[in-house]
Design a protein around this nucleic acid. Structure first.
Lengths: 149, 149
DNA sequence: AGGCAGTTTCAGTCAAGCTGCAACTCAACG
DNA sequence: CGTTGAGTTGCAGCTTGACTGAAACTGCCT
């Protein structure tokens, strides 16, 4: 997208470019394990809070239950999570991470750690981490600017 | 997306989160002008280097010519760019930014500047900008890890 | 003249989100 | 009781923004 050739590098452009590159790299590495970022994220939530349902998971991840269902379908098909309750329409599911799921989760963490090292320059350059955290803090998500009439 | 609730905040996660938020904000503001980031980017390239073609533009932006064509269709339809040559299949196009295009480009720049101020904390906090630039430098794009055909 | 790289254009595909809706559960209320 | 209504799962289809494939054509080079 924003090519190298060029000009102007404001913090906004830099943030978008870095975010994109990091995401691409992580997704790339993760793909070798057959998952994407959203799967890793779901595994993380489910690990910290076993037994929660599709909808709860969706709420935490900030997506619709329908989207989360897709994510979980993939994870179930990989044998990474399983439901401890009967499937069925209004039937709230109880989900848990399997051994395979933990294996995947740790592989994912390794990818993140590796990327982390690359991004901070292999040294403890918390300048970056600190700056990022500060920027995130003072940059809250948009307050639903849909109908401020 | 990576929700707030949670734990672990490595530089990689932070970078992805910040990049996403910034992008969302910019796209949001830009949408009010009827364009997206890729349109603004194309306008920028075309402004600096008038007369270049679809394919050249695509090359600079790092997308396929087919994708760039979509972007430009929108811009032409808005009257922001126009071709100074006849349309036609193998016929290399010469494109230029119109007055309306310049208006749009400046509006876009204003959005970026505004976001820039918000992200750096309204003060000259070049810590962030510096850190981002450094991280980007030491984090080159993936070297086409897909079988060197 | 012929070949061929480059360009524009058309068409279809894909991924990851979304909305809409149907079917169902379960707790609370009258 | 019964009924109502919020919450959930599941299914289908739409949207956006990229992509690949292939066709039509230009222009240059030999």
């Amino acid at each position: 997208m924003e090519s190298e050739s060029g000009p102007p590098l404001s913090a906004a452009f830099l943030a978008m470019a870095l975010g994109r590159r990091v995401r691409e790299r992580v997704e790339d590495r993760l793909r070798e394990h057959g998952i994407a970022l959203r799967h890793l994220s779901a595994l993380g939530h489910l690990h910290r809070r076993p037994g929660i349902s599709y909808s709860e998971l969706a709420r935490r991840a900030g997506v619709t239950p329908q989207s989360m269902q897709d994510t979980l379908r993939r994870l179930e098909q990989l044998g990474a999570v399983e439901r401890t309750t009967e499937p069925g329409r209004g039937r709230t599911a109880m989900l848990r991470v399997t051994d395979e799921g933990h294996r995947l989760r740790l592989a994912g963490r390794a990818v993140i750690d590796e990327t982390d090292a690359a991004i901070t320059g292999a040294g403890p350059d918390d300048h970056l981490t600190q700056s990022l955290r500060a920027a995130l803090d003072r940059f809250p998500l948009e307050p639903e600017r849909g109908a401020g009439e």
